[in-house]
């Protein structure tokens, strides 16, 4: 069971509530653009813990973007690329 904060809330809390897209970078330098529609239309969880414990790197932690299966399937624009693991940086895309 993943635990964490909703991407929407995280962005709002950091003053990025109005951005059209964000750029997410992983520890291995993987980068992906996530459009606003994704976190608006479904819940994107920025998971930091699994079953009450810190999210280990070998389990794709410590920060991983998670979308529950139903929401993922319902959203056409969502792809596996958006489920970033080992997230190291979230910034507004320009």
């Amino acid at each position: 069971m993943f635990e964490g904060i909703l991407l929407k809330d995280l962005l709002e809390a950091n003053g990025l509530g109005d951005v059209e897209a964000i750029k997410v970078t992983a520890e291995n330098d993987y980068q992906v653009m996530i459009p606003r529609s994704i976190w608006q239309e479904t819940d994107v969880l920025v998971a930091t813990r699994v079953d009450g414990k810190p999210h280990s790197r070998r389990a794709r932690g410590p920060i991983q973007f998670v979308i529950d299966m139903e929401g993922y399937k319902a959203l056409e624009v969502a792809s596996e690329d958006h489920l970033v693991w080992m997230v190291s940086k979230i910034e507004a895309a320009n």
Partner: peptide, 9 residues
């Protein structure tokens, strides 16, 4: 270790 974790995942 980090690199090894990356490779593991």
């Amino acid at each position: 270790i980090q690199a090894s974790d990356f490779l593991f995942v």
